[in-house]
């Protein structure tokens, strides 16, 4: 009987705790596929791996920040470049997870593939706690992406015309060398100069390297940078045409064939940082 009562006490306290803490922790979780990230665990990882650049307050003012260009992301504003959601909206947990996994080419942000999936999910949960936006708003559903059209001559020609009409050349240049008339004037949302992408160099795009990633960049824009969303100006079919044309500007790029194996590798896990080879 006594035992029973104790169990009852315990169950009751648990329910009370859950009710009280439930809504507080709600914003401190991340959901990526079947994974649930916890901010409390993410905080420890953040202190170990991220704090040097992004800072203890998540404002991008870590001790390394003065020597870094482009500057580390300020998580407090809740503005993120790589999203599947419309411009002005918050990214999904999945978007943040992909950014942590992928890293940012031409920046000091490495790929965090060496961390486990669970660790990366925990980090996403913690990063979201820096901005009140994640408590006040929910990210809308990702932009829909119809399947890719055939990359034939007609599509490339149409893409070329759109590249002119949509003034892509103003920044990226007539030949995609990042030398358009407005290129020198561009700054990011913190006032730092930011160069437009030079297609002829052929490095990976900031938010992924597949045609789907490129389509997404066009339609969502890179918030916090001068790159706008073209969701208003381009139909999905036109956006695919622009993607196909842009690929012809990447003269020096040797593209990996996108295979199921590569996909798997991107989302996979490798050994933890500092682990000794077995």
């Amino acid at each position: 009987m006594k035992h029973n009562r104790m169990r009852a006490h315990f169950a009751g306290i648990l329910v009370l705790l859950f009710a009280g803490v439930g809504q507080v922790t709600f914003a401190q979780e991340s959901h990526i596929g079947g994974l649930t990230g916890e901010a409390s665990r993410g905080k420890k990882l953040y202190r170990r791996y991220c704090v040097g650049c992004h800072g203890p307050l998540g404002d991008g003012r870590g001790e390394n920040a003065p020597w870094i260009d482009p500057k580390p992301r300020d998580f407090v504003t809740g503005t993120f470049k790589c999203r599947s959601t419309p411009t002005g909206a918050l990214p999904t947990d999945e978007d943040l997870y992909k950014s942590v996994t992928r890293g940012f080419v031409n920046s000091n942000m490495p790929s965090w593939l060496p961390l486990t999936r669970q660790q990366r999910a925990d980090l996403v949960a913690y990063v979201k706690t820096f901005s009140s936006s994640f408590r006040e708003e929910k990210p809308p559903s990702p932009l829909s992406m119809p399947s890719e059209s055939a990359a034939n001559q007609q599509s490339i020609q149409s893409g070329n015309e759109l590249y002119q009409k949509m003034n892509c050349w103003s920044c990226h240049g007539k030949e995609g060398r990042g030398d358009g008339p407005s290129a020198q004037t561009l700054v990011d949302n913190r006032g730092y100069p930011i160069p437009p992408y030079d297609f002829s160099v052929g490095t990976r795009f900031k938010c992924g390297e597949s045609n789907q990633d490129l389509y997404r960049i066009l339609m969502t824009g890179l918030d916090g940078t001068p790159m706008p969303s073209f969701a208003n100006g381009l139909t999905p079919a036109q956006a695919w045409d622009v993607v196909h044309y842009i690929r012809t500007l990447q003269m020096n790029v040797k593209r990996k064939k996108q295979t199921a194996e590569n996909e798997k590798k991107d989302g996979g896990e490798s050994k933890p940082v500092g682990a000794q080879p077995e």
């Binding site: 936006s133 009409k165 949509m166 003034n167 918030d223 969303s229 100006g233």
Partner: peptide, 27 residues
């Protein structure tokens, strides 16, 4: 007759950035 991008840079509201080609309906 040319494409603009409208890019507000708020501190206290959400930042967005939309391209608007000629002849398109108002954003």
């Amino acid at each position: 007759p040319t494409t603009h991008n409208i890019h507000p840079a708020p501190q206290n509201n959400r930042e967005w950035n939309l391209s608007q080609p000629p002849g398109s309906s108002p954003i």
